[in-house]
Computed example of a mutant assay.
Amino acid sequence: MAKIKITQTGSPIRRTKDQRATLIGLGLNKLHRTRELEDTPEVRGMIKKVHHMVSVEG
């Protein structure tokens, strides 16, 4: 399966608890941290929820 690269670009300060939890679920908890994850519908849904705080490649 394909991989996608996700980088955190926004701060979770003043965001809702579920958005913070979503970032942690993606493996992101500090600015400019990058993770390479499988491109699954579950991961895409998580990215959609926090699209304003992450950038996606691939």
Rank of each mutant, 00 (worst) to 15 (best):
A21S: 14
A2I: 00
K30Q: 14
M46D: 14
T7R: 10
P41H: 05
T9W: 02
Q8E: 00
E38H: 07
T34C: 02
I24L: 15
T34M: 01
I4A: 04
R15A: 05
L26K: 05
R44H: 06
D39A: 01
L23P: 06
K49H: 15
R20T: 11
R15Y: 02
R44M: 00
L31W: 01
S11M: 07
D18H: 11
V56R: 02
A2E: 09
L31K: 03
K30N: 14
A2W: 00
H52Q: 13
A2S: 06
R44S: 03
E38R: 11
D18V: 14
L31P: 00
M53R: 13
G27S: 11
I4T: 02
E36I: 13
I6P: 14
I47Q: 10
M53L: 15
E42Q: 11
G27T: 04
L28T: 12
L28S: 14
K17H: 07
K3C: 00
D39W: 08
M1T: 02
S55Q: 15
Q8A: 04
D39G: 03
K3L: 07
R15L: 09
M1P: 00
R35Y: 02
L28R: 10
V56Q: 09
N29M: 06
D18G: 06
I13D: 01
V50T: 05
T40E: 03
M1E: 00
D39C: 01
A21V: 07
R33F: 04
Q8T: 03
V43S: 08
R20H: 07
A2T: 02
Q8M: 12
G10L: 05
L37V: 14
L28Q: 10
E38L: 03
V43R: 05
K49L: 13
G27H: 01
H32E: 09
